[in-house]
Design a protein around this nucleic acid. Sequence first.
DNA 1: GTATAAAATGAATTCGGGTTCATTCTTATG
DNA 2: CATAAGAATGAACCCGAATTCATTTTATAC
Lengths: 227, 227
Amino acid sequence: MNSGSFLWQVSLILQVINRGRDGMMAYRQTERVKEKRAQKRAQIIKAAREIFAQKSYQEVSIKALAKKAKIATGTFYLYFSNKEALINMIVDEMFQELLACIKEERACFTDSLDKLQASMKACIKLFVKEKEMAKILLVQVPGVNNAFNAKLIEIENEMIRFTRNDLDELKAQGRLPEEDTLVSAMAFVGSFRQVIINWLREGKPEDLDKAFATLMEYNMRGLGQVK
Amino acid sequence: MNSGSFLWQVSLILQVINRGRDGMMAYRQTERVKEKRAQKRAQIIKAAREIFAQKSYQEVSIKALAKKAKIATGTFYLYFSNKEALINMIVDEMFQELLACIKEERACFTDSLDKLQASMKACIKLFVKEKEMAKILLVQVPGVNNAFNAKLIEIENEMIRFTRNDLDELKAQGRLPEEDTLVSAMAFVGSFRQVIINWLREGKPEDLDKAFATLMEYNMRGLGQVK
DNA sequence: GTATAAAATGAATTCGGGTTCATTCTTATG
DNA sequence: CATAAGAATGAACCCGAATTCATTTTATAC
């Protein structure tokens, strides 16, 4: 490599000095590129959501994901540190979205029972709208690994906790019989979960909205007469 | 390899002739060995059940399993064709056991409602007795892979189908209001599933038997007045 | 247009775990 | 006791998938 001409060396030195002076570089910051990068990142996430809704975590290879996102395998690692980071991000985002939906829907009511019903309605509404998300959260992701699975379990337990809170309030108002609200909350959440999952897996209750009504009646009766 | 002495060759030939004559071999059949083999097989299954109750399918390596079973890794393959065959066998066995339990318990009753209750009681009873089995069936195995997962889903759906049958009978007897029995069956099964899983995962309803009673009341109310 | 740095590429590398296999150990036969 | 076959062993092999990296492409600054 005969790159040692005097002029070349001088230009290099000058450049270094220049950079040292004001941190200038030949290609810095961006704008259009920044935009492009964000777009590509979104592209990857979109592809990932699609593919993870169909196959389980370990069945999805980075190669396949990259292909779907129309990038090279190596490119993936320019946007995410690794495969697990990606799924983590996706699930976190989804969870946040779910919580936001529930909160929003609940804000419309003051009565505990109404709020409880609003929570479940929010879930159903979101899952119907974003079937992909539902499949990932409820059907696919559980098969990742014990460590990661904990997050999913956390979400489920959070739902139970919320529900129990509502039930406790109702109980305090004397609108629920003396029962273990923990068990009731689990029954409540579990019944919804089961119907939603079956709907996702084999489209069994064809009309989820109608099933929702049936389910809510079932649970209202189950809770005991709540006025 | 100078194994061509005349005498050696003759002995070899005689041996072959001998075998050809009456199928005699130096070491055939067994009895004590047969027993020993069966024992070792059971040893492997026992270790597998223990380890699969704690870790998910892919988190369990044959090496680790072999270690737990106190055998060499290669030995595993003298008893099972591969890892998947093992887990398949285990799950199949468990499912059979579960079905047998339910059938037995149901046989004690003639009334549909009693039978329905007996089914769930049988499940709970078995899962309490064989917590290991419950963990594998309900908590761990879902994370194997899509193809295998189908079996687990089949089990769950089978439970729903049974339940629905009972509900349809009750409905025919005019003991249930006009409701979608599919949704009711899912709610029924789902509520039990949720409670059992939480109990397995974090021992949350400490007393599962007591929770069972609460849960059954919840669902009886949920179904509507069944006489 | 040239030089340079970021972005993208995909073949090569790594790694972990399932499976195999040459070897050693055990058991039964004569 | 010698022989040979089955049982057991665990190191070696293999394969697939995650991750890396040398190289190429694209974008910017002058």
